[in-house]
Design a protein around this nucleic acid. Sequence first.
RNA 1: GGCUCGUUGGUCAAUCGGUUAAGACGCCUCCCUUUCACGGAGGAAUGACGGGUUCGACUCCCGUACGGGCUACCA
Length: 449
Amino acid sequence: MQPHESPANPGKFGPYRQSERKALYTPYAEQLVEQGHAYYAFDTPEELERMRQNFKTEANPSPTYDGTTRLQMRNSLTLTPQETETLLANGTPRVVRIKMPHNQNIEFADMIRGSISFNSSMVDDKVLLKADGMPTYHLAVVVDDYLMEITHAFRGEEWLSSAPVHVLLWQYLGWQQHMPQWAHLPLILGPDGAKLSKRHGNKYGFPIFAMNWTDPSKSELTEGFKERGFLPEAFINLLALMGWNDGTGQEIFSKAAMAAAFDMSRVHSAGAQFDYEKAKWYNQEWIKRLADTDLAERLKRFDEGRFGHINQELLGKVVGLVKERCHLLTDFWNQASFFFQPPETFDTNAIAPKWTSEKTAFFQALLKDWGAAEQWEPSEIEQRFKNLANTHLLKPGELMLPLRIMLVGGKFGPGVFDVATMVGQPETLRRIEHVLQLLFTANASTEMV
RNA sequence: GGCUCGUUGGUCAAUCGGUUAAGACGCCUCCCUUUCACGGAGGAAUGACGGGUUCGACUCCCGUACGGGCUACCA
């Protein structure tokens, strides 16, 4: 997506980094305190932990800092104004918490879910401003959205339960008429039905993040979709189709087509499980759709070491030959390396059991016949191959697989004569000769035993 | 536990009260292909449960069950 404004493309709503906006938030937090909608809390982490332990019961396993407990804590509500002043003046660590009203119905509209309501007594006194002076998400999202004139706030469903805090803040700050429209998007779920997380990626072996990500605390690398070989087009496409569709059954959308077809009213409210198989299918569809030259360029960028030095035109042709059997960009090397270098291994087991001396004779003759060919193109060499098979009283069919193994190394890849043409006459002959030798030595050793 | 959101095949999903309940992924069979794929033709597989409302419910309402999210000085 192209943001209207960003640190890289500044406009009138900057700065954009929360650290650079730090000073902005404090006045609003103080304003809320003055209005009685928030208060200073001086509780230490230990005191908070003690509170959670003390109030913990079977019926209420996780007590919160709220209307039922705030009067028993150390804050500007329980302290005298003088005590509060002193603590503040001394620079005692403190946070600003919102004072959730008692038994008030907080209702708001969600573009996807319709009307949603919460009872304020059920919501805790969230921290607005942390001890280090930085705002929490709850304060920041409201202040930023107001200052940046945001009209629509789309976020994941996991934010739904803190939405009442945000709605109240819009009211308390007096900006109610500027509040954005809310849309809580369905969650992307893992194969087990729980909110998709890094855990799922490790467990099932698929990427979770768009790009490589290194956990700064553990310096542990998590491979991204990009590095795994997904195209941006496919990634955006598959993501958008989780929880939305245009109703026609169309599944492949370019970004522009998606923007034109998108309609909030068609967004689901239920979470969608991520299916890696389907994700790969989307990528394959996009690979098939992209122009060969475009794909060739992307491949060069994707795997500089392997494709970087290959002639652009040659790579384009090869890509056209193999792309429909590739799901990921990483598949291309496996599917096409034999065009650029001799196979490292040859699946001789696929042909050795049925090998005969007649076949040896045929391929030796083929070496001469193809060696003499002046036209090196698919139809020409195929005709020569078949004619030669006939004179050797062999069926072309039993010779095709051996030839394939000789040229590509295994039972896969485009038509053999296309491969031979692309690889070139000298290299083709070299590979035939090489595998003939392999077979010969294998047979010889067998006979020795 | 509380609050809250959700529930059509294994997965993504169409249906906006009346259909033989689409389509896609995956799986299986066959065709094409002298490999693998692509492509084509078929197949198996779905409305959580119980009540209402209605001439008629997958569709509207209620309850139950099940699942998710949140329950931090993280987002």
